[in-house]
């Protein structure tokens, strides 16, 4: 069955310059292995391709059963000179959580 990530996990967006960081934290720690398998860096890049122009690096954090996606060239040049409505990309955690996975 297809489901959206917001049913399985939560996320927080952060920014440094033109780089966006998105955490992905399952509500149930037992779902962490499945997230590793289904939410790859490639899939996140494909899902966010209209926003993230650079590469997506995924860090696995088994110590807290969480994933971290570091997305380059994602913030229209960076918060200080961006024309975007949300220059920090603070709302973009919910863009990640719109991603559909087979669950």
């Amino acid at each position: 069955m297809k489901t959206k990530l917001y049913n399985i996990a939560h996320s927080r967006a952060g920014d440094k310059g033109n780089t966006l960081m998105l955490s992905l934290i399952p509500f149930e720690e037992s779902d962490y292995p499945a997230l590793i398998e289904k939410v790859t860096a490639e899939k996140v890049k494909e899902h966010l391709k209209s926003i993230v122009k650079g590469k997506v690096i995924r860090y696995e954090m088994p110590n807290i059963s969480s994933l971290l996606f570091v997305c380059e060239e994602a913030l229209s040049g960076g918060v200080t000179t961006s024309l975007a409505i949300d220059p920090h990309g603070k709302t973009l955690n919910y863009a990640l959580l719109e991603m559909e996975v087979e669950w």
Partner: peptide, 17 residues
């Protein structure tokens, strides 16, 4: 909670290593 602390631990982290 674990959830609030996890979110903040990963906030604005470029490389957790």
């Amino acid at each position: 909670s674990l959830a609030t602390v996890k979110e903040q631990l990963l906030y604005e982290v470029l490389n957790p290593h």
